[in-house]
Structures are given as C-alpha cells and as structure tokens.
Amino acid sequence: MILEVALLTVREGMNEKFETAFREASSIISSMRGYISHELRPCIEDQHRYALLVQWQTLEDHTVGFRQSPEYQQWRQLLHHFYDPFPTVEHYGPSLI
C-alpha cells in the first residue's frame, strides 16, 4: 500500500467552493483502479490549508493509472484552479510499526 500526501493551500475566500468541488471530484478518484481510500483534512492552524491523504495499492496506480487517465483531466479541471501555490505531492511506503 502506498500513501499519497498532498498539502493543499486554497486561495483566500475559496474554501467553500473548493470543498464543494472536492466532494464532486471524490467520485472520480474513488472509481480508479488501485484506489483504496482517501481523506481530506482541514488544517487547524491555517483555514486555507488541507491535507489530502490517498491510499493506493501501488505507486503506479497513482502516477500512471490516475495521472495519465481522462478522469484525471476532469479532476484537474474541477480542482487545480483553487491552489496557490500548486501542491507538492509525496508518496510514502508501508508503516514501519
């Protein structure tokens, strides 16, 4: 299992629209091959930041299967205009404990 971690900073005044768009986009990502689960968590210290945590079966399920799919273009169209700056995405391996 791979954990994708993206810290998202949403443009000021766009939180409500972002959260609505993310609910719609959730059906896109959850339909992808290798998808296990995802969470979007709001930051307590900064109301414009969120942590997106997505579990995938393999790294390629995210980097190839999702990112190179037509569905990703829909995801991108729904969400990418909310971010400033554009998020950095990292991938983590299985838990050590």
Rank of each mutant, 00 (worst) to 15 (best):
R67T: 05
K17S: 13
Y72W: 12
E71Q: 11
E71W: 13
I36W: 05
I97N: 13
H48Q: 15
L8G: 00
E4S: 05
Q68R: 10
S30P: 03
Q68F: 15
F82G: 01
S26T: 05
E39R: 03
R67V: 09
I29H: 03
L3F: 12
E16A: 12
R67Q: 05
S26N: 05
F22M: 09
T88H: 08
R33G: 13
F86A: 04
G65R: 03
P70D: 06
T63L: 13
V10I: 15
L3Y: 09
P85N: 01
L78G: 00
T63E: 07
A25K: 00
D61I: 06
E24H: 05
Q73E: 13
E39L: 11
P94F: 14
E45K: 09
F22L: 09
G13C: 08
H38L: 11
G13T: 04
P85V: 11
R41E: 08
E19L: 14
D46C: 04
P70W: 09
G65L: 08
F82A: 02
Q73W: 09
T88M: 13
K17E: 11
V54D: 02
P87H: 04
L53W: 06
S37V: 12
H80N: 08
D61R: 00
F18Q: 00
A51V: 15
V5L: 12
M1S: 07
